[in-house]
Design a protein around this nucleic acid. Structure first.
Length: 506
RNA sequence: GGCGGAGUAGCUCAGUUGGUCAGAGCGCACGGCUCAUAUUCGUGAUGUCGGGGGUUCAAAUCCCUCCUCCGCUACCA
């Protein structure tokens, strides 16, 4: 089984913020989960480097566009390992392979009679790089400006168009047959209602700037964002060489996107693909946005969250955990210091960390660090093992639908059951009365700890490995095959150390 | 305006096809344990399940209506 997951390509007009980190980590979690399932995974991210905005920013910086994007792209390249993301490729739209792929996709669309030359005209804002309808504009001092105050000018230019209007019925048909190809459900509804509202042909080239992929056989035009940007998902797996091994293995992809760019991925992109005779994406998942202490995040408010700052303050796994434990994936969330501290302390330090600590240090002090497989299971033991089975089933069901928060909650419930089991079995009492039973109890809990650590590995990979290391357990020999079967090996415990330090109140 | 979603304990939210569905976590109160990062375990309290009406033996769950909030309603990644 193969699994292909992508982030959007990030636009090189600014440095990365928490939103970029959020999307990338989401993909990393899903990628790691699928690896645990035993799949071959291809995880792609990259940067989108063309367009008028970049061209202008480069001029303002006294740099050639390529020099400018080289500088900005590296910020995104460097962020990936800092976030603990294990990617398989990083694509830049200025790469030769991508220019070739986009042009090839264009030619394929042209060959299939999906592109025609015409004129595009309307009110255009250079700052926003977008056209506006008259009713979206307001008049200030006799001049039209956009809602956010950008000046607009009336522009008429020759442009190539994609026959999007021809794909309305086919898209509707496709989505009605594949209701889970857009998630969450509410986004699916939005997309479908948008398509049902009618589709107009799409302008896909520009002549007013040069920083883009040249349109084949007409160098006056460069591609306007859509085909260039979206095609990256094909480029990275070898397109246009459709006999390429990666292409054959990994297409179609699962795309994780912010809710603001859902339409491009869920309407234009599948239409392009179908028009080119290529299968549409397997799934598009749209996630929400973060606020900061209840406030909308914006540069002008000065409350942009720098992923480096926040991770250096709380720790990588702690932030990864918070981002996906706190909020149902797909919803908007609020990033607050209080919520972060509560989450880390309650779930990681007090619940999981404590279970690890109380068992490992108890075993070191009272059983010479050695744990031996349990032989005679009581009803209570069996109950706990049954809970593991139930929670693992839930966890997989949720993860398969990108309900990461629900999956995490299932594991936390298992860990809570582990803590409760320790209390009822009271190994500190058994120490005086029944040493054999004490050993069994410790071993049964250790099984739960190890399985919990592996289930949480996609979210908190470094911490999970630390925990497994305490128990000298190598997770490579226990992925999700026969996962709930109890471990059966002697375990020697390494020096325990607190994995999740609590966050002290400010 | 149109389409869609949501209003459930102080907070964040679960609640498939109507009948242990009135719940979880956090917070709070009380009690227990002492292995553990002053951690954990147990018990308990607060809810007219947005308002009103209807269908039904039975509705948070279906229908009608009203109120509030949110998203989408095309060319910005």
């Amino acid at each position: 089984m193969n699994f292909y997951i992508t982030t959007p390509i990030y636009y090189t007009n600014d440095i990365p913020h928490i939103g970029h980190a959020y999307t990338s980590i989401a993909c990393d979690i899903i990628a790691r989960y699928n690896k645990l399932l035993g799949k071959n995974v291809f995880f792609l991210t990259g940067t989108d480097e063309h367009g008028q905005k970049v061209e202008k920013a480069a001029i303002n910086s006294n740099l050639k566009p390529k020099e400018f994007v080289d500088k900005l792209s590296v910020n995104f390249v460097n962020l990936i390992p800092f976030l603990g993301c294990e990617i398989d490729d990083f694509i830049r739209t200025t790469e030769e392979r991508h220019i070739k792929a986009s042009q090839e996709l264009w030619k394929q669309l042209e060959k299939n009679n999906q592109i025609y030359l015409s004129n595009y005209e309307g009110w255009y804002s250079v700052r926003d790089e977008a056209f506006y309808l008259e009713n979206e504009l307001k008049k200030i001092d006799g001049n039209y400006v956009t809602d956010n105050g950008s000046p607009v000018e009336w522009v008429k230019e020759e442009s190539y168009f994609f026959k999007l209007s021809e794909w309305q019925d086919k898209l509707i048909n496709y989505y009605e047959k594949n209701p889970e190809s857009i998630l969450p459900k509410t986004r699916y509804n939005e997309v479908l209602s948008f398509i049902k509202g009618g589709l107009k042909d799409l302008s896909i080239s520009r002549t007013t700037f040069n920083w883009g992929v040249p349109v084949p056989n007409n160098p006056k035009h460069v591609m306007y964002v859509w085909i260039d940007a979206l095609c990256n998902y094909l480029t990275a797996i070898g397109y246009p060489d459709i006999n390429n091994n990666n292409y054959k293995k990994f297409w179609p992809a699962t795309h994780i996107v912010g809710k603001d760019i859902l339409r491009f991925h869920a309407v234009y992109w599948p239409a392009f693909l179908m028009a080119a005779g290529i299968e549409p994406p397997k799934r598009i998942f749209a996630h929400g946005w973060w606020t900061n202490e209840g406030q909308k995040i914006s540069k002008s408010l000065g409350n942009v969250i720098d992923p480096y700052d926040i991770i250096n303050e709380y720790g990588l796994d702690q932030i990864r955990f918070f981002l996906f434990r706190e909020v149902p994936f797909g919803n908007d969330g609020d990033f607050s210091k209080k919520a972060i501290a509560n989450r880390i302390n309650a779930d990681l330090s007090n619940n999981f960390g404590n279970l690890v600590q109380r068992i490992s240090s108890f075993a070191v002090k009272n059983n010479d660090s050695l744990l031996r497989p349990a032989e005679n299971l009581t009803n209570e033991d069996q109950d706990l093992i049954n809970i593991l089975q139930n929670k693992f089933d839930e966890y997989c069901k949720f993860m398969n639908n990108q309900q990461i928060d629900r999956a995490i909650k299932s594991v936390l419930e298992l860990i809570s059951a582990g803590n409760a089991y320790v209390d009822t079995q009271a190994p500190w009492a058994l120490k005086k009365t029944n040493k054999i039973r004490m050993e069994e109890v410790l071993y049964i809990v250790t099984n739960i700890i190890i399985k919990s650590a592996i289930m949480l590995y996609p979210i908190i990979p470094t911490s999970s490995k630390k925990i497994l290391n305490i128990f000298n357990y190598n997770m490579d020999n226990n992925k999700f095959e026969n996962f709930t079967k109890p471990i059966n090996q002697n375990i020697k415990i390494n020096n325990p150390e607190p994995i999740f330090p609590r966050i002290l109140n400010d």
